[in-house]
Nucleic acid binder design. Structure first.
Lengths: 222, 222
DNA sequence: TGCCTGTCACTTCCATACAAGCACCCGCCG
DNA sequence: CGGCGGGTGCTTGTATGGAAGTGACAGGCA
């Protein structure tokens, strides 16, 4: 079930665990037993330990010395903070993209936008989600700052399931598409501040999006 | 993320190596030999491996499977990108702080600013650097977003030695202080956009700062 | 002479064994 | 009856040995 299977075992374990935690398959505070994990993955404890150490550094688990490692699921408050940072990162990308994007990069953004529009009538939020991601990715690329792109991608990955969730709100995909259009115009006209402001509002969690987030968190459907 | 009270050897090794790399005590591309490191630290290879794995995740070293781990010192181009992200993060903190800071937090920023002013006549860039850090830290705290603060602190730590270096430019501390004053005013008056713009310019690497950076990089004095 | 191939040494990576520390539990004492 | 202290089991952290993979080098072939 793992696509990139030629990697070293420790990396594979870390990747699998990361996905599982991101999918909220573990409750907050659950202890990850090294022996149990080593049995489940069919390897010894050493690679499991390395994988856990890696995960600890990204903040998905916390390691208490001589106590063990515990998964750390962000609650609503921290999730809001993370979305706020996501919004700021995207805003920064947009600001830079508006100033630096060359013709082909603007074209890529425009193309992704129309693809979003085409995915809209199908009414499948997951299909829209995929196109939506390439739209944002195109803006990342146009920012011309690979370090910034790396940070944005990592956080996006971490919030993936929640962003996907939000698109299941009735009417949200259409709304999202409209916001994309305005962002595209701002970038085309080279207005960095406006692109930043629009992107910040586009990603931020407000109003209905906030309610939906909390409800799903409580129902634990994610 | 938590490096407090580490009795464990692996964490200590990771911390020591991180400092050494940040101080540019290793050239770019140098291979970190597990045997050599284990001998130097007087421990076995296992904790060394864990430490290297941790460092790989932060991007300070890269691990090529079955080949080894190599230190990865950012060149001028990437360093510029990192400073640009730092500027954006600080700008975000400033924007939020202008809106959310309560009286005591504003007071803390003001106090740090005057401390910077007091450290100025001594003419010691390192003394000014310390006060400068608490000024920025005060703004971080006032942003009210702990996740954002964590990201800012980590990047600040990574760029520490370069930020310190810049203050050795003749006249830079006084210039910095003047910019601080304007930032303080913007936050006091609740003008988030202005605070963001000022902070972005304050941190960004431009003009003389850029030249100084490249020169020091080439002389390899850092 | 240039290229290919087989072998070798070195290194990483995983498995297993051992030591040390924390938590829990039970009995004891106030 | 409640708080406390020591023993015990389970867990983590480290050490070490072995297996597998990679790069380099030398020798043979075209």
């Amino acid at each position: 079930m793992q696509s990139r299977g030629d990697q070293s075992t420790a990396h594979r374990i870390a990747a699998d665990l990361e996905i599982a935690i991101l999918k909220r398959e573990f409750e907050n505070g659950v202890r990850l037993d090294e022996n149990e994990l080593s049995a489940r993955f069919g390897v010894s404890r050493t690679p499991v330990r390395e994988a856990l150490g890696r995960l600890a550094l990204t903040g998905l688990v916390v390691q208490m010395p001589r106590r063990g490692t515990f998964v750390r699921q962000p609650g609503p408050a921290e999730l809001l903070e993370m979305f706020e940072v996501m919004a700021e990162l995207e805003a920064s990308c947009g600001r830079l993209a508006a100033r630096r994007a060359d013709a082909s990069q603007v074209e890529a953004i425009r193309k992704a936008d129309t693809a979003c529009g085409n995915a809209l009538p199908a009414g499948d939020p997951n299909a829209y989600y995929a196109e939506n991601e390439t739209f944002h990715q195109a803006i990342y690329d146009a920012s011309g700052n690979r370090f910034l792109v790396g940070k944005a991608l990592r956080l996006q990955r971490r919030l993936m399931f929640f962003r996907q969730m939000q698109l299941h709100l009735r009417g949200r995909p259409a709304e999202s598409r409209a916001e994309h259009a305005a962002i595209l115009v701002a970038i085309e006209s080279g207005d960095g501040d406006r692109a930043a402001t629009l992107l910040r509002a586009h990603v931020a969690v407000q109003g209905e999006k906030f309610h939906s987030l909390v409800v799903h968190l409580n129902r634990n459907e994610w």
